[in-house]
Design a protein around this nucleic acid. Sequence first.
DNA 1: TTTTCGTTCCCACTTACATCA
DNA 2: GCTGATGTAAGTGGGAACGAA
Length: 277
Amino acid sequence: MAWSFSVDSAKEHLPGLVSTASTSMFRDSCKGLKKRPYQCVGTSGIDNDNIRDKNRRLTVEQINFLEMSFNADLKLEPERKALIAKQLGLRPRQVAIWFQNRRARWKNKQVEHDFETLKANYDAVVKEKESLIKDYESAVEDNKRLQAEVARLTNLLQDMKDTDVNNIQSLMKEEQRSGNCELMSPTKSADCQSEIDDLIMPTDAGKVAMTNCSLQELNASIACGVRAEGECAFFMSSENVFGSLPLLVQQLIANGHCFEDAYNIYLGCEYFGGGWR
DNA sequence: TTTTCGTTCCCACTTACATCA
DNA sequence: GCTGATGTAAGTGGGAACGAA
């Protein structure tokens, strides 16, 4: 195909539409494969209709009308296209192209919006995951600490059983005989056997109440004679706190054990030994 | 009834140009 | 005035749908 173009004649006939810059581009672009109608004209010369369309921007009014129409319906039926084209003074092809490009822009916006939504959801999930990991690590630490405590007490108890089991049992029997422990006294124990069983010898070892309670708390619980859930349970006379403690506990404390360990050992003997009754 | 062909439309991608900082 | 980034009108190629022959 032979391309024929005269820049001078174009400038002469269409001075407002053919700038120096665009004409140089015009020549270059004609060497490319993709050409616009206004760029490469036939031997007949300039195509005035195509030149007129040179990347003409739509007016604000045209765009507003097209936007309104687009918002009403993204698709464009042939009848509507013809009507819009007539109303705006555009070619139906231009209206169709505008709708195509507008749909593409709309789709891009949708993709962006979807991306933002997904990103927000992802961030929330990550945050929740971090929180769960923190909780898990805290639980692992607690578990380690409790296991160490169990091991320590088990060892302590084992040592006591190995060395003093006979002594302990005799002490406990002596305590039971003396009636020092209210609930464990012969008279009380008959009435409160089920309570004692629940307290001292539960079927579930985990229910044995062993907590860190101070001597004051201990005294208070003794005075009230009430065993709150999860508290150390002493059911003894309250005249003299130390003197009312089980003999085993007294002896352990006298031997240098702290109160908590002494009482835990006492309960452990109750639970594991069980032979004093 | 099935096949073929032409037309139209749409989409994704690309190009060329206008505009702006 | 030049330049790069961005927005937009329009070109291109391919596929789908549809009707006529």
